[in-house]
């Protein structure tokens, strides 16, 4: 099993938005998709996924619709709303800025400052 990292607070929402931005998915599919796009390097407690989904739906960032899964079961599919797409763009940019700032700080060599 590959080594996994703990999630930072607030990043789960961002990952969900990213996952559904690639196409409508049900809850379990979102979990798989996050694993796939993060090369299974993030540890996502399954129980915390659904409250996050409900919160995002409540905020109007994703929309839910009942559909049929690959194996012919009734499943609830989530897709990104325009507001969600906007939020994803902003959060991604913010995250990138944050990450590069942290990286730059951590890469600093003594004597340069």
């Amino acid at each position: 099993m590959p080594k996994t990292a703990e999630l930072l607070p607030g990043t789960l929402d961002l990952l969900i938005l990213k996952a559904v931005s690639l196409g409508p998915l049900h809850g379990y599919g979102i979990l798989l998709r996050i694993g796939q796009i993060s090369s299974n390097s993030l540890d996502i407690p399954q129980g915390s996924l659904y409250p996050a989904l409900y919160r995002l739906e409540h905020q109007g960032l994703i929309a839910a619709e009942w559909g049929v899964s690959d194996n012919n079961r009734r499943a609830k599919y989530y897709s990104l709303t325009p507001a969600g797409r906007r939020r994803l763009r902003e959060e991604t940019a913010g995250w990138n800025r944050f990450a590069s700032a942290i990286a730059a700080a951590l890469n600093a060599v003594p004597g340069e400052g």
Binding site: Q46, G47, S48, P51, Y54, R55, E57
Partner: peptide, 17 residues
């Protein structure tokens, strides 16, 4: 692995206000 069902449901309800 899913975790305690009641807690998850309660958290879901809370998420919906």
């Amino acid at each position: 692995e899913f975790g305690p069902r009641n807690t998850v449901e309660e958290n879901c309800r809370r998420s919906r206000g």
